[in-house]
Design a protein around this nucleic acid. Sequence first.
DNA 1: TAGATTGTTAATCGATTAACAATC
DNA 2: TAGATTGTTAATCGATTAACAATC
Lengths: 210, 210
Amino acid sequence: MAGYVSDAVIRRLPGYYRHLRELEAAGVTQISSQELGKRMQLTPSQIRQDINCFGGFGRQGYGYKVSELKGHIGEILGLDRLHRLIILGAGSIGSAVARYPTFSREGFETIAMFDVAPDKVGTRMGNIPIYPMEELENFLSGYKVDIAVLATPTHCAQENLDRLYAGGVRAVWNFAPTDLNHPADMIVVNVHLSDSLQILSYRIAHRDDG
Amino acid sequence: MAGYVSDAVIRRLPGYYRHLRELEAAGVTQISSQELGKRMQLTPSQIRQDINCFGGFGRQGYGYKVSELKGHIGEILGLDRLHRLIILGAGSIGSAVARYPTFSREGFETIAMFDVAPDKVGTRMGNIPIYPMEELENFLSGYKVDIAVLATPTHCAQENLDRLYAGGVRAVWNFAPTDLNHPADMIVVNVHLSDSLQILSYRIAHRDDG
DNA sequence: TAGATTGTTAATCGATTAACAATC
DNA sequence: TAGATTGTTAATCGATTAACAATC
């Protein structure tokens, strides 16, 4: 079904899913591209184009069934599968990810954390055990891990990524504020918090430019 | 100098700044668009176009002086100014932001946190005092706040944003996983962690599509 | 049926890439 | 000077928007 889908479209998918979830929760059962566009600040054309990258989920003269479309987009995003996560780094970022409430709802289960600090190792964060970093390879040889969250200091991020790859992990959610080198068959998605804050700073500095 | 600058360009600026900082730290003093492009996975053309939105910072036959270009981009991003932050919500996300090491380096100073939990109120996170949420308006009437970080639960995010606006705050860094309504003269930059993780999930699900 | 709204093709717009004269 | 590389204009490519026939 889905041939080539551009990055621009993919980046909008979570937004669709989020708004459809909110609409469903608000009891809305049907919506047109017109109304959804107004809500999401997108043109109706764009919404129809985006959705039709994946299939004709609407009905002429009617629009889209909210829960049905949400279901389709959820599947497209892979949210119907269970993803097993590990978190490298039990600092403040690692903790925030471990405690983030909505992830488990959406099929992301954190099965272990790793850290170098002796006072953290052996304890638990909620239900999640914290292992010493040197146990990583051993752990990976015993468990299938779908996603590793990289929340260690920047200076060891590349080394940790290499160890993850060697251990068979092929998807990384990176919070270290640096661009990591990785083989083509490893998927890396960055959360560069500083970048985001700097963009806010840019907009403040250029508030009246245009 | 800078006329209209597209979003696409603005989103790349922090990346330039980051790479230039790394290059400077590595002792590299000069770089061509060719070399920088190779490092950042961008075309030399794009780099020259991006930079020339703001001015001719290079020299023909030579390239760019790393520290000079970094300085220019830092200014363009507004990193030469001090930004005073407050953080709404002293949960795991709020704590992670409060403790994020690089922000203070770049001129972002957190002066207060706010929370509803009685056991948190009155304590400090590092040096930062935690005030009760109902003190927000009072605080805002006494301090000039450049940026508010919204790290409260989703269900009160809109209400908190409205209170911030009423209190005079005009820039918000939003971590609540929802799109907030805000007046045109308020700048809101979102960090939608779920969206980012869902994009990773999409890429895993469509790994072999093309 | 008439009205509404999709799915899809065509037109437009903007961003990226290529090319090259200017010049360090 | 010759070689390198910018700044900038022109060409290309891709994404967004508009239009409209299909159809619920």
